[in-house]
């Protein structure tokens, strides 16, 4: 198990970053943040927290790397198939007659969620009118999303999820296999725009009909969750949707009053 990290050192690091770079990790959930730090110390072979703090302070390129390493990028295609099924069966019918369906993947990671959405829309005959905006704080994962190259070993789980979602075809209809990797059909990205965007500090000026923010808020404390859900409320069209991870909730956020619960089980909320 990783090195034990003292909370006082974590505060020092947070203060240093806030002072030097203006980014506030003070509202990150402690347990996961601590683990990420332990991992960075291990991977980059620091002797202790003091060395890490000093390196982050003086070395901006390392700080940029640190930012990427701190964020969690675990994802799957059609993660929680029942959520995707709910989207297909109950959310799509609401938006199907819109002239344009504007969708935001607010933390797109390596893109699995974006490809899932593109496939779901395509099979529902809605892809042509969809405009998908996909963003992440980490441009490296955006590059991976654009490339659409995934380890072949991941496709068993992705395919399993797609089957549970009750997709119309086989998932392999949407990718080409070459040995250890598969390459996603790039036509799925035709209506997708990727951009680096910081959910915490960024201002979203566009408006959306569907926002996905799945398993991101869990890394923040409640005040920051509240702030971000408040931002979502501002850029969601009336009757638009917000989908969170299966164990995330807006129940404790101030802007809970801006939403109706559309699916309690799948954590889909509808803007009033």
């Amino acid at each position: 198990m990783e090195l034990e990290i003292d909370i006082i050192d974590i505060r020092k690091l947070v203060n240093t970053i806030k002072m030097v770079y203006g980014f506030d990790f003070g509202e990150y959930a402690l347990s996961s943040f601590k683990r990420r730090l332990a991992r960075i110390i291990e991977v980059y072979k620091f002797d202790n927290m003091a060395d890490l703090i000093e390196k982050v302070r003086v070395d901006k390129p390392f700080y940029e790397l640190f930012l990427k390493e701190v964020t969690v990028n675990t994802t799957e295609m059609f993660r929680d198939p029942s959520m995707w099924k709910k989207l297909k069966e109950t959310v799509f019918p609401v938006v199907k007659d819109y002239s344009t369906i504007r969708i935001w993947h607010s933390a797109c990671s390596t893109g699995e969620e974006v490809y899932s959405m593109a496939i779901a829309l395509k099979e529902a005959g809605l892809y042509e009118k969809a405009r998908i905006f996909a963003s992440d704080i980490n441009e490296d994962v955006i590059a991976k999303a654009l490339e659409g190259k995934y380890p072949a070993r991941n496709m068993e789980l992705n395919g399993f999820n797609y089957e549970k979602f009750e997709g119309k075809l086989k998932l392999n209809h949407y990718f080409k296999s070459t040995g250890d990797y598969v390459f996603m059909d790039q036509d799925l990205l035709r209506n997708v725009t990727f951009r680096k965007f910081d959910l915490v500090q960024g201002d979203q000026t566009m408006r959306f009909d569907i926002i996905l923010c799945r398993n991101v808020l869990i890394y923040f404390n409640l005040p920051l969750q509240d702030q971000i859900v408040g931002k979502f409320a501002k850029c969601t069209s009336q009757g638009g949707f917000l989908a969170l991870g299966s164990k995330e909730t807006i129940a404790w956020c101030k802007s809970v009053d801006n939403y109706n619960t559309f699916s309690l089980e799948e954590k889909i909320y509808q803007r009033k």
């Binding site: 402690l30 347990s31 996961s32 969690v72 675990t74 993660r79 991870g245 164990k247």
Partner: peptide
């Protein structure tokens, strides 16, 4: 602990979940 999440005991008498590796 819910399926596919790590379950942490967090400061402030709360539970935090995580999808880390």
């Amino acid at each position: 602990a819910p399926s596919n999440y790590h379950m942490y005991v967090e400061l402030g008498n709360t539970i935090a979940l995580s999808t880390e590796d």
